[in-house]
Simulated assay, not measured.
Amino acid sequence: MLKTGGGDLEEIRGFISEIKDTEQATVEQAAQETSSANEQFEIRLSAKPLPDATAHYAATIINRLEVTSLNDTSTSITSVKVNRGNCPVGGGENYKNMQYGTVAEIIIRCDARQVREVTLTTSSGEYTYNFNGQ
């Protein structure tokens, strides 16, 4: 772990602030869906520090993909690809039998600011969402 001195703490705070700004921009930005299937999802990216971060150690950042179902019928996500498979995907929660408004949280193992494309697969088809790089 990286020990911080007086100036390093400000650098970490700046980094966390930059992550928050990136997350807000991602939320405000509409992801463009390219699919011919009829299911709909809302995609958000977030990068949050673990709550137990202290001033003595650099904050550990957890990057997550949040997928909200906008479907009236139950649907399950069977596969997730980020950046065409170039960003490893970790475990997730709530991605099976998703009702309208259900949020699936999936850990991604790359910087959330670098995500350009997310592809979700369900039994009804494949959905690709593109994000503008900012």
Results as ranks from 00 to 15, higher is better:
Glu117Tyr: 11
Ser17Asp: 02
Asp21Cys: 13
Asn38Leu: 11
Gly85Glu: 00
Asn130Tyr: 01
Thr34Ser: 09
Glu18Met: 11
Ala47Arg: 08
Thr73Val: 10
Thr26Val: 11
Lys20Arg: 05
Gly101Lys: 14
Glu11Pro: 00
Leu2Thr: 08
Ile106Asn: 02
Arg116Pro: 08
Asn38Phe: 01
Ala58Phe: 14
Ser17Ala: 10
Tyr100Trp: 13
Gln32Leu: 12
Asp52Thr: 14
Thr121Arg: 09
Lys20Ile: 06
Lys96Glu: 04
Thr121Asp: 06
Val27Ala: 08
Gln32Thr: 07
His56Ala: 10
Cys110Trp: 02
Ile19Arg: 10
Val80Gly: 02
Arg109Thr: 08
Phe15Pro: 02
Glu18Gly: 07
Phe131Arg: 05
Arg44Val: 11
Gln99Leu: 13
Glu105Ile: 08
Leu70Asp: 05
Thr128His: 01
Leu2Asp: 07
Arg116Lys: 12
Cys110Thr: 06
Gly101Tyr: 12
Arg116Val: 06
Asp52Ile: 15
Ser17Lys: 08
Tyr129Gln: 00
Leu50Tyr: 15
Gly125His: 05
Glu18Ala: 11
Ser36Pro: 00
Ala37Lys: 06
Gly14Trp: 12
Leu45Thr: 03
Val80Ala: 02
Val118Trp: 02
Glu39Cys: 00
Asp8Ile: 07
Arg44Ala: 14
Pro49Phe: 12
Glu10Ala: 12
Cys110Ser: 04
